[in-house]
Design a protein around this nucleic acid. Structure first.
Length: 268
DNA sequence: AAATGCATCAACCGCATTGCG
DNA sequence: CCGCAATGCGGTTGATGCATT
C-alpha cells in the first residue's frame, strides 16, 4: 500500500497559474490570512491542491517579495551561508528578507555554481578545485569495501591540506553536511602577514594568499578586490581581509539560528 | 527563416518533520 | 508513545525564451 497523495488530484489543475487564479488566491489570503492550506483552495474557489497554493503564495504572490536578480551583496551572503549550512535553502532564505528558498536555490544552480567553478572553487565544498580530484569521485565510482579507507584517506587529505595551508589561511573542517564542511567562526585562522590591521589594502593580502596557495592558473576577475561594500561589482574576496581583527576574533554576525550564531566568512 | 542547443525559473514530486488527538 | 494529517523542504522536471548554427 503506497503513500496517500497529498491531496485528491482528480480534477485538480496543474501547471502555470493564470492571472485569475493568482487574483483569487491573493484576495483570499489578504482577506482571511494564511490558514490551513489544504482547505484553502476550496474556500478560495481554486481547482488546485493546497500545496500548490502555498508554493504560489510563498514564491510569487507574497507582497514582501523582492523582484529581480540577487544583488552581489545578497549573492555573497548566499555563498557564505551555503558554506556554513549546505543546501538548506530555507535557512539561507530566512537570512535574506524578500527572497524565497526556491529563488535562491535556482540562482545558486544557474549562476553562483558556475561563478565559483570559474573562480576555481568547488561549489559543493567551497574548497579550491585543485584539492577535489579524489573527492570528486562519487560513491558509485568506488567499491563499497573501500569506504573505510576512503574515509581514512579523506582525513589524511584534510590533514595534508592543513599543513599545506600552514603559512596561509587555515580552516579546520569540523563536520560535513551534504558534503559541505561546517566550520566554527573561531576555527578560521589567518596568518598575520603582509598587511597592518588597519590597512585597507585587501588586494595585497589576498594576492599573497593566492601565491602561497599555488592555485591553478586562471583569470581572477579584475573587480574582485575593489574593497568597497557599495561597489556593485565586488567579488568574493571583497573586504573580507581588510581588517585582520575581524577574521581573528570577531567576524561579522549574519544572524542567529537554531544552531547558534551565523558568521560571514570567505574561504580562500 | 528554421532547427537546435542552452539557460532560466516556476512548479511539481516525494520524503521529512511537526503537531495533534 | 503511537498514528495520522498537515505542512515544510529540497531535488528535479518541463515549459519557455533566447542565442547560435
Amino acid at each position: 500500500m503506497g503513500r496517500q497523495p497529498c491531496c485528491d488530484k482528480v480534477g485538480l489543475k496543474k501547471g502555470p497559474w493564470t492571472a485569475e487564479e493568482d487574483q483569487k488566491l491573493n484576495n483570499f489570503i489578504l482577506t482571511n490570512g494564511q490558514c490551513c492550506w489544504r482547505a484553502l483552495p476550496k474556500l478560495a474557489g481554486l481547482l488546485r491542491c493546497g500545496k500548490s497554493c502555498r508554493l504560489r503564495w510563498t514564491n510569487y504572490l507574497r507582497p514582501d517579495l523582492k523582484r529581480g536578480h540577487l544583488s552581489e551583496y545578497e549573492e555573497q551572503i548566499v555563498i557564505d551561508l551555503h558554506a556554513q549550512l549546505g543546501n538548506r535553502w530555507s535557512k539561507i532564505a530566512s537570512h535574506l528578507p524578500g527572497r524565497t528558498d526556491n529563488e535562491i536555490k535556482n540562482h545558486w544552480n544557474t549562476h553562483i555554481k558556475k561563478k565559483l567553478k570559474k573562480m576555481g572553487i568547488d561549489p559543493l565544498t567551497h574548497k579550491p578545485l585543485q584539492h577535489q580530484s579524489r573527492q570528486d569521485k562519487t560513491p558509485n565510482d568506488l567499491p563499497e569495501t573501500s569506504l573505510q579507507s576512503t574515509i581514512t584517506e579523506a582525513k589524511e587529505e584534510e590533514k595534508n591540506m592543513k599543513s599545506a595551508f600552514l603559512d596561509g589561511p587555515t580552516m579546520t573542517v569540523l563536520d560535513y553536511t551534504d558534503g559541505v564542511p561546517l566550520i566554527e567562526p573561531h576555527e578560521i585562522l589567518v596568518p598575520v602577514a603582509c598587511s597592518e590591521p588597519s590597512s585597507t589594502s585587501s588586494s595585497c593580502v589576498s594576492s599573497k594568499f593566492l601565491e602561497e596557495l599555488q592555485l591553478p592558473d586562471f583569470d581572477w576577475p579584475t573587480d574582485c578586490n575593489t574593497g568597497n561594500d557599495n561597489d556593485e561589482n565586488f567579488g568574493l574576496w571583497n573586504d573580507d581581509f581588510r581588517d585582520w581583527g575581524d577574521l581573528l576574533c570577531d567576524r561579522p554576525k549574519l544572524g542567529v539560528d537554531d544552531d547558534g550564531p551565523l558568521y560571514s566568512w570567505t574561504f580562500i
